[in-house]
Amino acid sequence: MNGADNLQQEQAPAKRGELIAVCSAKGGIGRTVLAVNLAVALSKNNIQIALLDGDFQFGDVSLAMDLQPTFTIKDVAESMDAMDKHTAASYLIRHSSGVKVMAAPERPEQADLLAAPALGTVCDLLLAQHDYVLVDTEVGLKESTLLFVEKADQIFILTTLEMAAIKNTRLMLETLEALGLRHKVQLVVNRATMDSVIKATDVPDIVGIEHPYYVPNDFAIVAQSLNIGVPFVQNHGKTDIAKSIFKMAEQLISRREISLFKPKQPSFLNSLFHRTKGSTT
Protein backbone atom coordinates (compact mmCIF):
# COMPACT_ATOMS: atom_id res chain seq x y z
CA MET A 1 0.00 0.00 0.00
CA ASN A 2 1.50 3.35 -1.02
CA GLY A 3 1.31 6.78 0.60
CA ALA A 4 -1.62 7.84 -1.59
CA ASP A 5 -3.64 4.84 -0.40
CA ASN A 6 -2.86 5.67 3.22
CA LEU A 7 -3.93 9.27 2.72
CA GLN A 8 -7.14 8.15 1.02
CA GLN A 9 -7.94 5.87 3.96
CA GLU A 10 -7.30 8.67 6.44
CA GLN A 11 -9.55 11.04 4.52
CA ALA A 12 -12.38 8.50 4.10
CA PRO A 13 -15.34 9.18 6.38
CA ALA A 14 -15.52 6.91 9.42
CA LYS A 15 -18.08 4.14 9.14
CA ARG A 16 -21.04 4.49 11.49
CA GLY A 17 -23.86 2.08 11.97
CA GLU A 18 -27.39 2.89 13.10
CA LEU A 19 -28.36 2.94 16.76
CA ILE A 20 -31.81 1.59 17.64
CA ALA A 21 -33.04 2.13 21.19
CA VAL A 22 -35.75 -0.34 22.23
CA CYS A 23 -37.84 1.30 24.95
CA SER A 24 -41.07 0.93 26.88
CA ALA A 25 -42.98 2.97 29.43
CA LYS A 26 -44.06 -0.17 31.29
CA GLY A 27 -42.23 -3.31 32.30
CA GLY A 28 -43.11 -6.85 31.30
CA ILE A 29 -44.42 -6.07 27.83
CA GLY A 30 -41.73 -7.69 25.70
CA ARG A 31 -38.92 -5.18 25.30
CA THR A 32 -36.08 -7.69 25.71
CA VAL A 33 -37.85 -10.29 23.55
CA LEU A 34 -38.16 -7.76 20.73
CA ALA A 35 -34.57 -6.54 21.04
CA VAL A 36 -33.11 -10.05 21.01
CA ASN A 37 -35.23 -11.42 18.17
CA LEU A 38 -34.88 -8.30 16.01
CA ALA A 39 -31.09 -8.43 16.44
CA VAL A 40 -31.02 -12.09 15.34
CA ALA A 41 -33.39 -11.42 12.43
CA LEU A 42 -31.17 -8.57 11.23
CA SER A 43 -28.06 -10.75 11.48
CA LYS A 44 -29.54 -13.18 8.95
CA ASN A 45 -28.92 -10.52 6.28
CA ASN A 46 -25.15 -10.95 6.48
CA ILE A 47 -24.59 -7.67 8.30
CA GLN A 48 -22.82 -6.89 11.55
CA ILE A 49 -25.15 -6.58 14.57
CA ALA A 50 -24.34 -5.67 18.17
CA LEU A 51 -26.81 -5.85 21.04
CA LEU A 52 -26.17 -3.83 24.18
CA ASP A 53 -28.05 -4.81 27.32
CA GLY A 54 -28.91 -1.35 28.64
CA ASP A 55 -30.94 -2.56 31.60
CA PHE A 56 -27.95 -2.25 33.88
CA GLN A 57 -29.65 -3.48 37.04
CA PHE A 58 -31.74 -6.42 35.84
CA GLY A 59 -30.80 -7.08 32.23
CA ASP A 60 -32.02 -10.37 30.72
CA VAL A 61 -30.40 -10.35 27.27
CA SER A 62 -27.79 -12.97 28.22
CA LEU A 63 -30.51 -15.17 29.72
CA ALA A 64 -32.72 -14.82 26.62
CA MET A 65 -29.79 -15.90 24.41
CA ASP A 66 -28.34 -18.56 26.74
CA LEU A 67 -25.01 -16.75 27.04
CA GLN A 68 -22.48 -16.85 29.88
CA PRO A 69 -20.50 -13.64 29.37
CA THR A 70 -16.95 -13.38 30.63
CA PHE A 71 -17.03 -9.58 30.53
CA THR A 72 -19.77 -6.99 30.98
CA ILE A 73 -20.14 -3.31 30.21
CA LYS A 74 -18.83 -2.64 33.74
CA ASP A 75 -15.45 -4.07 32.67
CA VAL A 76 -15.45 -1.83 29.61
CA ALA A 77 -16.23 1.26 31.69
CA GLU A 78 -13.38 0.44 34.08
CA SER A 79 -10.90 0.19 31.17
CA MET A 80 -12.14 3.25 29.30
CA ASP A 81 -8.78 5.04 29.31
CA ALA A 82 -7.24 2.34 27.12
CA MET A 83 -10.34 1.61 25.03
CA ASP A 84 -10.65 1.77 21.24
CA LYS A 85 -13.02 0.02 18.84
CA HIS A 86 -10.78 -3.04 18.54
CA THR A 87 -10.32 -3.38 22.29
CA ALA A 88 -14.07 -2.92 22.86
CA ALA A 89 -14.75 -5.81 20.46
CA SER A 90 -12.88 -8.19 22.78
CA TYR A 91 -15.47 -7.53 25.50
CA LEU A 92 -18.35 -8.75 23.33
CA ILE A 93 -19.69 -12.28 23.45
CA ARG A 94 -20.71 -13.85 20.16
CA HIS A 95 -24.07 -15.59 19.88
CA SER A 96 -24.54 -18.54 17.51
CA SER A 97 -26.55 -16.26 15.19
CA GLY A 98 -23.57 -13.94 14.76
CA VAL A 99 -25.01 -11.20 16.99
CA LYS A 100 -22.38 -9.80 19.36
CA VAL A 101 -23.62 -8.95 22.84
CA MET A 102 -22.39 -6.41 25.38
CA ALA A 103 -23.74 -7.83 28.62
CA ALA A 104 -25.23 -5.93 31.54
CA PRO A 105 -23.38 -5.91 34.89
CA GLU A 106 -23.64 -9.04 37.01
CA ARG A 107 -24.99 -7.23 40.06
CA PRO A 108 -27.66 -4.46 40.33
CA GLU A 109 -25.42 -2.23 42.48
CA GLN A 110 -22.78 -2.18 39.72
CA ALA A 111 -25.11 -0.08 37.56
CA ASP A 112 -24.08 2.97 39.58
CA LEU A 113 -20.51 2.58 38.32
CA LEU A 114 -21.52 3.37 34.73
CA ALA A 115 -21.07 7.07 34.03
CA ALA A 116 -22.85 8.73 31.10
CA PRO A 117 -19.64 9.72 29.22
CA ALA A 118 -18.47 6.09 29.27
CA LEU A 119 -21.83 4.87 27.93
CA GLY A 120 -21.69 7.37 25.10
CA THR A 121 -18.18 6.23 24.21
CA VAL A 122 -19.23 2.56 24.26
CA CYS A 123 -22.04 3.33 21.81
CA ASP A 124 -19.64 5.16 19.49
CA LEU A 125 -17.13 2.31 19.57
CA LEU A 126 -19.82 -0.27 18.76
CA LEU A 127 -21.28 1.89 15.99
CA ALA A 128 -17.84 2.11 14.38
CA GLN A 129 -17.78 -1.65 13.78
CA HIS A 130 -21.41 -2.67 13.28
CA ASP A 131 -24.19 -1.91 10.83
CA TYR A 132 -26.76 -1.83 13.63
CA VAL A 133 -26.42 -1.48 17.38
CA LEU A 134 -29.59 -2.32 19.30
CA VAL A 135 -29.96 -1.23 22.92
CA ASP A 136 -32.43 -2.95 25.23
CA THR A 137 -33.05 -0.04 27.61
CA GLU A 138 -34.49 0.16 31.10
CA VAL A 139 -38.17 0.84 31.66
CA GLY A 140 -39.12 4.50 31.38
CA LEU A 141 -36.82 7.44 30.80
CA LYS A 142 -34.00 7.10 33.30
CA GLU A 143 -30.73 8.93 32.75
CA SER A 144 -29.05 6.13 30.81
CA THR A 145 -32.13 5.62 28.62
CA LEU A 146 -32.26 9.34 27.82
CA LEU A 147 -28.62 9.12 26.71
CA PHE A 148 -29.42 6.22 24.40
CA VAL A 149 -32.53 7.82 22.87
CA GLU A 150 -30.65 11.06 22.22
CA LYS A 151 -27.91 9.15 20.36
CA ALA A 152 -30.36 6.83 18.60
CA ASP A 153 -31.22 7.00 14.93
CA GLN A 154 -34.52 5.30 15.71
CA ILE A 155 -36.45 4.78 18.94
CA PHE A 156 -38.68 1.71 19.06
CA ILE A 157 -41.34 2.15 21.74
CA LEU A 158 -43.32 -0.92 22.74
CA THR A 159 -46.84 -0.93 24.01
CA THR A 160 -49.59 -3.50 24.36
CA LEU A 161 -53.37 -3.31 24.40
CA GLU A 162 -53.43 -2.90 28.18
CA MET A 163 -54.79 0.45 29.33
CA ALA A 164 -51.86 1.12 31.69
CA ALA A 165 -49.32 0.44 28.94
CA ILE A 166 -51.10 2.74 26.49
CA LYS A 167 -51.46 5.53 29.07
CA ASN A 168 -47.77 5.37 29.98
CA THR A 169 -46.74 5.15 26.34
CA ARG A 170 -48.65 8.31 25.56
CA LEU A 171 -46.89 10.11 28.43
CA MET A 172 -43.52 8.88 27.19
CA LEU A 173 -44.26 10.13 23.68
CA GLU A 174 -45.28 13.53 25.04
CA THR A 175 -41.98 13.72 26.93
CA LEU A 176 -39.98 12.77 23.84
CA GLU A 177 -41.83 15.42 21.88
CA ALA A 178 -40.90 18.04 24.48
CA LEU A 179 -37.27 16.90 24.09
CA GLY A 180 -37.46 17.21 20.31
CA LEU A 181 -37.00 13.47 19.78
CA ARG A 182 -40.43 12.30 18.69
CA HIS A 183 -39.50 12.27 15.00
CA LYS A 184 -37.25 9.28 15.71
CA VAL A 185 -40.05 7.18 17.21
CA GLN A 186 -41.40 3.97 15.70
CA LEU A 187 -44.31 2.47 17.62
CA VAL A 188 -44.51 -1.31 18.11
CA VAL A 189 -47.84 -2.74 19.26
CA ASN A 190 -46.86 -6.01 20.92
CA ARG A 191 -49.34 -8.85 21.59
CA ALA A 192 -51.57 -7.14 19.05
CA THR A 193 -53.96 -10.10 18.78
CA MET A 194 -54.59 -10.52 22.50
CA ASP A 195 -58.16 -10.27 23.81
CA SER A 196 -58.82 -6.68 24.83
CA VAL A 197 -61.54 -4.06 24.74
CA ILE A 198 -58.96 -1.89 22.94
CA LYS A 199 -58.30 -2.93 19.36
CA ALA A 200 -54.79 -2.88 17.98
CA THR A 201 -55.88 -0.59 15.14
CA ASP A 202 -57.12 1.96 17.70
CA VAL A 203 -53.71 2.40 19.35
CA PRO A 204 -52.16 4.73 16.73
CA ASP A 205 -54.99 7.23 17.19
CA ILE A 206 -54.88 6.98 20.97
CA VAL A 207 -51.14 7.67 21.26
CA GLY A 208 -50.79 9.82 18.16
CA ILE A 209 -48.29 7.73 16.16
CA GLU A 210 -49.07 6.48 12.65
CA HIS A 211 -47.96 3.30 10.89
CA PRO A 212 -46.91 1.11 13.85
CA TYR A 213 -45.49 -2.37 13.64
CA TYR A 214 -47.85 -5.07 14.90
CA VAL A 215 -46.48 -8.16 16.63
CA PRO A 216 -49.07 -10.90 17.26
CA ASN A 217 -49.61 -12.55 20.62
CA ASP A 218 -48.04 -15.99 21.07
CA PHE A 219 -47.44 -16.58 24.76
CA ALA A 220 -46.43 -20.23 24.36
CA ILE A 221 -43.68 -19.54 21.81
CA VAL A 222 -42.32 -16.53 23.72
CA ALA A 223 -42.31 -18.33 27.08
CA GLN A 224 -40.54 -21.34 25.60
CA SER A 225 -38.01 -19.07 23.89
CA LEU A 226 -37.13 -17.32 27.15
CA ASN A 227 -37.01 -20.53 29.16
CA ILE A 228 -34.58 -22.32 26.84
CA GLY A 229 -32.63 -19.22 25.79
CA VAL A 230 -33.22 -19.61 22.05
CA PRO A 231 -34.69 -16.61 20.14
CA PHE A 232 -37.85 -17.78 18.39
CA VAL A 233 -36.76 -16.39 15.02
CA GLN A 234 -34.13 -19.15 15.05
CA ASN A 235 -36.24 -22.22 15.76
CA HIS A 236 -39.79 -21.05 15.02
CA GLY A 237 -39.16 -18.95 11.92
CA LYS A 238 -42.42 -19.91 10.20
CA THR A 239 -44.71 -18.74 13.00
CA ASP A 240 -46.68 -15.51 12.65
CA ILE A 241 -44.79 -13.85 15.50
CA ALA A 242 -41.41 -14.63 13.90
CA LYS A 243 -42.63 -13.44 10.49
CA SER A 244 -43.62 -10.09 12.03
CA ILE A 245 -40.05 -9.65 13.34
CA PHE A 246 -38.51 -10.63 10.00
CA LYS A 247 -40.75 -8.09 8.29
CA MET A 248 -39.56 -5.43 10.71
CA ALA A 249 -35.92 -6.32 9.95
CA GLU A 250 -36.52 -6.20 6.19
CA GLN A 251 -38.10 -2.76 6.40
CA LEU A 252 -35.24 -1.47 8.53
CA ILE A 253 -32.65 -2.68 6.04
CA SER A 254 -34.59 -1.34 3.05
CA ARG A 255 -34.84 2.07 4.73
CA ARG A 256 -31.11 2.09 5.43
CA GLU A 257 -30.24 1.08 1.86
CA ILE A 258 -32.40 3.90 0.50
CA SER A 259 -30.79 6.46 2.82
CA LEU A 260 -27.29 5.28 1.86
CA PHE A 261 -27.96 5.22 -1.87
CA LYS A 262 -26.38 8.10 -3.75
CA PRO A 263 -26.32 8.02 -7.57
CA LYS A 264 -22.78 8.07 -8.85
CA GLN A 265 -21.95 11.27 -10.68
CA PRO A 266 -20.52 10.58 -14.15
CA SER A 267 -16.87 11.50 -14.53
CA PHE A 268 -15.84 14.34 -16.83
CA LEU A 269 -14.32 11.92 -19.35
CA ASN A 270 -17.41 9.70 -19.27
CA SER A 271 -19.68 12.69 -19.90
CA LEU A 272 -17.45 13.87 -22.73
CA PHE A 273 -17.46 10.40 -24.32
CA HIS A 274 -21.25 10.16 -24.29
CA ARG A 275 -21.62 13.71 -25.60
CA THR A 276 -19.21 12.98 -28.46
CA LYS A 277 -20.90 9.65 -29.21
CA GLY A 278 -24.30 11.31 -29.28
CA SER A 279 -23.13 13.99 -31.71
CA THR A 280 -21.82 11.41 -34.20
CA THR A 281 -24.98 9.30 -34.41
Rank of each mutant, 00 (worst) to 15 (best):
residue 142 K to A: 10
residue 158 L to C: 02
residue 77 A to I: 13
residue 234 Q to W: 00
residue 138 E to H: 12
residue 252 L to T: 00
residue 206 I to S: 00
residue 97 S to P: 14
residue 195 D to R: 11
residue 73 I to T: 05
residue 125 L to T: 04
residue 196 S to K: 09
residue 186 Q to G: 12
residue 21 A to T: 04
residue 204 P to D: 09
residue 113 L to H: 12
residue 260 L to R: 15
residue 273 F to Y: 13
residue 140 G to Y: 08
residue 241 I to R: 00
residue 221 I to D: 02
residue 245 I to G: 03
residue 27 G to C: 08
residue 170 R to Y: 11
residue 89 A to N: 10
residue 246 F to Y: 10
residue 34 L to F: 01
residue 129 Q to R: 14
residue 245 I to R: 01
residue 268 F to D: 11
residue 106 E to Q: 15
residue 23 C to W: 04
residue 28 G to E: 04
residue 56 F to P: 08
residue 259 S to T: 02
residue 149 V to P: 15
residue 200 A to I: 11
residue 63 L to Y: 00
residue 267 S to I: 07
residue 231 P to R: 03
residue 5 D to C: 05
residue 152 A to I: 09
residue 24 S to T: 01
residue 47 I to V: 08
residue 138 E to A: 15
residue 51 L to H: 05
residue 252 L to Y: 07
residue 221 I to P: 02
residue 172 M to D: 03
residue 201 T to I: 08
residue 60 D to L: 04
residue 9 Q to D: 13
residue 246 F to D: 14
residue 60 D to C: 03
residue 103 A to F: 00
residue 84 D to L: 13
residue 215 V to W: 05
residue 83 M to S: 10
residue 28 G to R: 03
residue 281 T to C: 09
residue 162 E to Q: 12
residue 222 V to W: 04
residue 196 S to N: 09
residue 65 M to E: 04
residue 139 V to I: 11
residue 164 A to S: 14
residue 25 A to N: 06
residue 271 S to V: 11
residue 53 D to H: 01
residue 198 I to N: 08
residue 166 I to S: 01
residue 108 P to T: 06
residue 89 A to D: 15
residue 77 A to K: 11
residue 260 L to T: 14
residue 139 V to E: 03
residue 275 R to P: 04
residue 254 S to G: 02
residue 220 A to K: 14
residue 209 I to N: 05
residue 155 I to Y: 06
residue 127 L to S: 07
residue 167 K to P: 04
residue 233 V to M: 06
residue 143 E to C: 10
residue 226 L to K: 05
residue 257 E to M: 15
residue 28 G to H: 03
residue 174 E to T: 12
residue 244 S to V: 01
residue 20 I to T: 03
residue 192 A to G: 11
residue 232 F to L: 05
residue 119 L to Y: 01
residue 208 G to I: 06
residue 123 C to K: 12
residue 14 A to L: 13
residue 188 V to A: 03
residue 134 L to Y: 08
residue 28 G to L: 06
residue 76 V to P: 09
residue 257 E to S: 13
residue 45 N to H: 15
residue 108 P to L: 02
residue 118 A to F: 05
residue 275 R to I: 10
residue 186 Q to M: 11
residue 111 A to Y: 00
residue 190 N to R: 08
residue 119 L to I: 12
residue 151 K to Y: 09
residue 270 N to R: 15
residue 196 S to T: 10
residue 162 E to L: 08
residue 149 V to R: 12
residue 59 G to I: 02
residue 43 S to T: 08
residue 23 C to A: 09
residue 189 V to P: 07
residue 14 A to T: 00
residue 238 K to A: 11
residue 266 P to M: 08
residue 202 D to H: 07
residue 80 M to D: 06
residue 20 I to E: 01
residue 254 S to C: 02
residue 249 A to K: 05
residue 53 D to I: 05
residue 115 A to S: 12
